[in-house]
Design a protein around this nucleic acid. Sequence first.
DNA 1: ACATGTGAACTGCTTCACAGCG
DNA 2: CGCTGTGAAGCAGTTCACATGT
Lengths: 216, 216
Amino acid sequence: MHADKPIAESTVRRLSLYLRVLEQARERGVETISSDALADEGGTTSAQVRKDLSFFGSFGTRGRGYAVADLVAELRRILGLGREWRVYIVGAGKIGAALSTYQGFVQRGFTVLGIYDNDPRVVGTTVEGQVVRDFGTLAADARRDEPDIAVLAVPGEAAQHVAEQVVAAGIDAILNFAPVALHLAPNVTVRSVNMALELEGLAYAIVHRDPVTTAA
Amino acid sequence: MHADKPIAESTVRRLSLYLRVLEQARERGVETISSDALADEGGTTSAQVRKDLSFFGSFGTRGRGYAVADLVAELRRILGLGREWRVYIVGAGKIGAALSTYQGFVQRGFTVLGIYDNDPRVVGTTVEGQVVRDFGTLAADARRDEPDIAVLAVPGEAAQHVAEQVVAAGIDAILNFAPVALHLAPNVTVRSVNMALELEGLAYAIVHRDPVTTAA
DNA sequence: ACATGTGAACTGCTTCACAGCG
DNA sequence: CGCTGTGAAGCAGTTCACATGT
């Protein structure tokens, strides 16, 4: 039994990671796994694994560990992966096109219903097997398709405006790939993936790396 | 003057974000900006902005704010963006191809020197203007190219093995797009971008969203 | 004997609030 | 007077350590 208290984002991210580790373990025929083994694979600690899971219930057996198949099922349920998620991709550039067929999405139950662009030279062309739709028709289409999530793969300058249009169309969950912070109503859930920013973090780490470890 | 104490990753990420906001402000002709304004744009608080900057020095003027051009220069220096960063992309699939010409990388001084794959059907073909190199030649090529960073855009199953090869070739900074945790020597700096995991975080947020805000 | 589940201690990031300076 | 820079307080996430259950 799990009380719905607010769970840290970092915890949810780790749960996704555990799920992936467990699925791989299951493919290898592993039936039972300890928090220790799960932690090793997931790059964290056993205490962290147990704490993360404890927010949602008691899924293990003392002295034994976790039944892999059961824990997979629990995590899928907790993460909300038991249903199809309907996704619009906005921006038919290289990133948007790549995302539209990304297996990591498809395999987890995320279905791309439409891919949008506002460039008349792109609208109507076929990208990864889907005809690119006109961004101007998104609101009307959304009434029919009832998408749950919009993935924004547009330039930074356009992102805020596009996001507002998407929200106006009734979509209140956005995965943002543009390198800017979006300012939207608090009932809209936004998660951002900022690739350039991660690369810069890497540059920072290299530059400020402890010289001791760099010794020849 | 800044002492090189360890800085939180979250702080570094925000610095990248501030830099972007400042560059946009500069383009609009803004010459001075307050921590308050910077915070609004960046989606944080003024105290956070001042604290983040304070780790590296005092760049503002009391009663006035920050000179945009100066702060841009300081942040670029702090983040290590004053030089060219040489990048290999490993994996010439859709994501790898998209990343190889991603403007967010190019504009920040990251130069893609080579794109690699191990599929003989792909090696030798041209992807986004670059001939795909054989992954088997990466170690030899690296001695000549001296890349600083490898971007991994390979399937999850291959990621650990590929990462080890990349590290063996002398590259000790990795941006990982595969949906798995990499286990590497502690002197190797790794940053991961897990797109599927962010989408799952969104699904979790939707499922567990406070019903009050969902009221019709 | 072994591994989970969890309150308590700890660590570190964020927020507060105000002294200091232009 | 306005806004920065920062010690101190507050808070959230992580780690510890052990009681509990198999």
